[in-house]
Design a protein around this nucleic acid. Structure first.
Lengths: 316, 316
DNA sequence: GCTTTGCTTGTTCATATGCTCACTTTGTTG
DNA sequence: CAACAAAGTGAGCATATGAACAAGCAAAGC
């Protein structure tokens, strides 16, 4: 009776559980994929595929326990120059899709900060969605609750829809932008909306995207702003937006008419959250990031090498 | 000018930092070792060795973000049977040294629970030392402070000596056992000793070893007890010890003369700490673990398959 | 009933990886 | 300064791994 093969017949263990078992054998015990296969009654290739899946979905994540981890050269330079709490700079690799890699880096960054049953406040934007995508298993495993900082429910659902999610999800159940200031005001005063917004500001960590003032901005692509409005904001000194609020190059929120139509937490109030993580990269994001940094709208930054270098090159 | 090779000349980056950089490229960016070598001006083999070192020292740690991670079959069974908070069961592999693997598992377990600047209370024993060994990089990276639950300073120094350690280390500056109850009592009342013990009980997490009542026990090997004393304790119903205090099969601390000679936190007081992790494995540890479980002296267990199976086989 | 489509599974093979061993460097001690 | 030990380095090779491809299978559609 070969004890390596008969032990594990039992029930057709649930998928995730099997995956965790495999990951454990492989990474912690250092068994080879073939050995694991023998142990668990699977073909080597299947083990390989499970591992691949685990890595892709973020169920398996590598921790780098080094004080330097967050401060590799450029990151540290950013921290010092802009007085950030921490920064993560990912290498600018030619072939890889930038969005996904920023998301992965942000997920990794958050993975080290989120505690079991934590509450994470999330803003709006592509980078945020990419991050949530990679973060899903962590969120489930640690029973993290999410709370949105802005309206625009549909967009959020894309990012987190269909996933196993053990914590609660508190969405602001409104559009991001509505047709009149009065309507926006009324919505903001709705008890449920207020409650979610209040809850959001109790989070210890917030993750926000940083939008560019350009006709290609996600706000435009999603129909929340027209290209001509963007042009107008640009004339008025806007260099970027956070949570749909535009600010100038010093990071001061502008007094735009648009803002009165928004249903979202005011970036000024956001400051009550101790850790505000901004994620963005690319040439178009340099000015927006700079503004956000100068105004202290964020205190943690995830970006890539090229962008970081550009940020550091600017002489204020 | 090939930008992949000239970028990284700069300073002869400190070792850990280089390692972190390599780990990042390899695990997060998925570059091959050869590519990393080119990027950083190192030979492929050197990159390979760095990674190996990182894994061995625990600087690189794999997270398995699954609710099942802690509850793989046997673990879950233990949790249910003994009302534990959590349990980790490692596979019993023939060739591997058990102590080191228990240590690794415990380090991994703790890695998911320790928060930045946390305080970890540690007991005494081989398993604890093995764990601290593997945990060192995590401790440094998260600025974890350590506080000892027992005297016996020298032994602790072995486990943590020479490592980079960013948090504080609070040792109880006494032997584990002293010659008279009076002397032990006096030491326990020494302000500094009292302070450390009080501090220890404020920790959220404690890690303790579980000793067997046998002539091979670590307590004997280190000269704290004689084999004949052990024999005597055995006759009096002792099945195991925690922090140098022996208990019976129901986990009740015995009224042994020895205990009055000890300078260590009382396991009864230990209960104030919400998470008490016991680590031990091997046939000799079955009875000791059972006692500790029955008496609720620990509420988290790290052990191996064979031991877990044996624990579950016992009908109370 | 048959086909189509999409998914899972296993095979083959190129590649990535880690190990062994001989060699070099570095630091230490007489 | 020489001699030696200890750690570090690189080449070659066996092994582990992942990707491309092909076969099998099940559900959906005609």
């Amino acid at each position: 009776m070969d004890d390596t093969s008969e032990r594990v017949v039992e029930n057709p263990i649930d998928d995730d559980e099997l995956l965790a078992q495999i990951a454990w054998y492989y990474y912690v015990d250092g068994l080879t994929q073939e050995e694991i296969g023998g142990h668990l009654g699977l073909s080597r290739i299947k083990v390989s595929r499970c591992l691949d899946k685990g890595r892709r979905t973020g169920l398996i994540q590598v921790q780098i326990n080094s004080p330097y981890e967050g401060s590799l050269r450029l990151g540290r330079a950013l921290v010092e120059r802009f007085g950030l709490a921490d920064a993560r700079v990912i290498p600018s690799l030619a072939g890889a899709p930038r969005g996904a890699r920023i998301g992965q880096a942000a997920a990794h960054f958050l993975g080290r900060r989120l505690v079991v049953r934590d509450l994470l406040a999330v803003g709006w934007g592509e980078a945020v969605m990419a991050t949530l995508d990679r973060l899903a298993p962590t969120l489930a495993a640690r029973e993290i609750s999410l709370v949105s900082l802005t309206g625009g429910v549909a967009a959020y659902l894309d990012g987190i829809g269909g996933r196993t999610q053990k914590g609660d999800i508190h969405l602001i159940p409104t559009p991001l932008r509505v047709s009149s200031p009065e309507f926006a005001g009324a919505l903001r005063l709705e008890p449920y909306v207020r409650d979610v917004m209040t809850l959001a500001l109790t989070a210890k960590i917030a993750l926000v995207g940083i939008g560019a003032v350009s006709p290609q901005a996600t706000l435009v692509n999603n129909g929340y702003c027209s290209a001509s409005e963007i042009e107008l904001f640009h004339r008025q000194g806007a260099v970027g937006d956070i949570l749909g609020y535009f600010y100038d190059r010093e990071g001061r929120i502008l007094a735009l008419d648009l803002h009165t139509h928004m249903v979202a937490v005011d970036p000024e109030h956001l400051r009550r959250i101790p850790t505000i993580i901004g994620a963005a990269a690319g040439p178009a994001k340099v000015e927006p990031i700079l503004g956000a940094l100068r105004g202290g709208l964020i205190n943690n930054l995830i970006t890539d090498e090229a962008t970081a270098q550009e940020l550091l090159n600017r002489r204020d």
